[in-house]
Design a protein around this nucleic acid. Structure first.
Length: 436
RNA sequence: GGGCUCGUAGUGAAGAGGCCUAUCACGCCUCCCUGUCACGGAGGAGAUCGCCGGUUCGAAUCCGGUCGGGCCCGCCA
């Protein structure tokens, strides 16, 4: 029966059977070490029989092997145990050299992203690359756990839509049996409508933006962790979001802390409830410490976002920070103006390690006000089939509510201190790439 | 969409008119090595320098075009 690399240590003195991929060969003359990779990691196998070593001649990293051997406790071996007197069976021989190196020395510079993505299937066999996606899976698992603990219902809303009504980003258009359809740019309307059913909902699904953006933080397809909750106020929303990120970071480091230490990834420093700064405060702090002053602008410059995160880490003890009090002039029609200052919106952006990872606003839940904002801000027709069902949810009763859309890949990227959101995407899609 | 940059063995880089018959590191092949740790040592194979055209006695190197990347900005998650 096959055992996994992580179980080898429990079988000291026993004959065991492992299967996996040839990950590394080290020939030391009379002694050969090989590493066999399986889903849990590596098993070290010691070969002294020349005939066994000879079976691997001409075979490349990636060859699929079965190994029978006796587990020996050995402090010099990684993990404290290794296989001796091993008999190797080649299950799938690989004779072609892999297009990119799998087990690279630390001195090896990373591939250009284009090369990396062209050879994604092979490159992911690198342990460090794998860790990115094990972490991402854990992020999703931990987020789901947190939502469910807090009374959310998971849902899945359509990504094929009749037309673009939300406004803002460019949308992809496609032929739908002779009619024009679009790909969803967010779950915005659906999650608000579902507040009227479940109070608290979330989903983790792809979303599509036809923006011709070529930056380290944009893709045309990405996963959004979308949540919406009713019967809350702005403060509740920010507290909840802080709790989510903390929970995710805790779970990820519980599961992969040792591994991440090897790659020199530090657990983020976070306060239980993230610090909050108004946009005006960010502009002012930035202007005071830097040459440029962007106080006149109704948005943050990317450089301000990076700088304020450094500031928050040093001065406020948190690598995540909320920026609040956004100008109402640039808000979406479904956002809510502040009750005590209609010039500002009840909106926040969550900045983490220099990048915006989420937008968390309160929504306008009063039917009459919303219809007016739709007309004024979006020049939309309330009778349009794209708006009518949405508005009916309000007409027939929606409580005060708010929520957020959080980029899964951006969150993963920043948790791991990667340089590009695409590195945190298995098969990234951007303006230039549609495969593999 | 705007700006700035870069295309050289399988991978990552150096070379910036003749020292190039193109250099280095990793990988690959052969050999040596009994405790490696993303081992070490010796030797070897592998590149019509993205493509097309031009300038020149001579182009990886200069110019024009073309194709493909990267980064920044705008916009956003």
């Amino acid at each position: 029966m096959r055992i996994l690399s992580s179980e080898v240590r429990e079988h000291i003195g026993e004959a065991v059977h492992v299967e996996g991929w040839l990950h590394k060969k080290r020939l030391l003359g009379g002694l050969t070490f090989i590493n066999v990779r399986d889903r849990r990691g590596l098993t070290q196998v010691v070969l002294q029989d020349k005939d066994e070593v000879e079976k691997l001649r001409g075979l490349q990293i990636g060859t699929v092997l079965a190994v029978e051997g006796t587990v020996k406790e050995e402090p010099r071996a990684p993990g404290g145990a290794e296989l001796h007197d091993a008999k190797i069976t080649v299950l799938v021989p690989v004779t072609d050299e892999p297009p990119i190196e799998i087990d690279k020395p630390l001195s090896h510079k990373p591939e250009n992203l284009d090369t990396l993505f062209d050879n994604r299937v092979i490159g992911l066999r690198n342990l460090q690359e794998q860790t990115i996606f094990k972490v991402q899976a854990k992020v999703l698992e931990a987020a789901r756990e947190y939502f469910i603990q807090n009374g959310f219902t998971e849902m899945n809303t359509p990504k094929l839509l009749a037309g673009a009504t939300e406004g803002g980003a460019e949308v992809f258009k496609l032929d739908y049996f002779g009619k024009e359809a679009t790909l969803a740019q967010s779950a915005q309307f659906y999650k608000q409508m579902m507040v009227g059913v479940f109070e608290r909902v979330f989903e983790t699904n792809p979303t599509y933006r036809a923006e011709p953006s070529a930056t380290t933080r944009h893709m045309t397809e990405y996963i959004t962790i979308d949540a919406e909750m009713g019967f809350i106020e702005f403060d509740d929303l920010l507290t909840f979001t802080s709790g989510l990120i903390n929970h995710v970071a805790d779970r990820v480091w519980e599961a992969y802390g040792d591994e991440l230490k090897k790659w020199n990834v530090e657990k983020p420093v976070l306060t239980p409830n993230f610090p909050r700064l108004t946009m005006a405060e960010v502009h002012a702090l930035y202007a005071k410490a830097n040459k440029d002053d962007y106080s006149a602008e109704d948005d943050l410059r990317p450089d301000e976002e990076r700088w304020i995160c450094e500031y928050a880490k040093k001065e406020l003890g948190s690598e995540a920070v909320f920026v609040t009090d956004w100008p109402a002039s640039s808000m979406k029609f479904y956002h809510r103006k502040k009750a005590d200052n209609p010039e500002l919106a009840d909106r926040s952006d969550l900045l983490f390690r220099g990048v915006e990872i989420a937008t968390a606003p309160m929504r306008e839940h009063r039917y009459e006000v919303l219809v007016q904002q739709l007309k004024d801000l979006a020049h939309g027709d309330p009778e349009h089939p794209g708006f009518k069902p949405y508005l009916s949810a309000f007409k027939y009763g929606l409580p005060p509510h708010g929520g957020f859309g959080m980029g899964l890949e951006r969150l993963t990227e920043k948790l791991l201190n990667l340089g590009n959101v695409k590195e945190a995407t298995l098969f990234p899609r951007d303006i230039n790439r549609l495969g593999p």
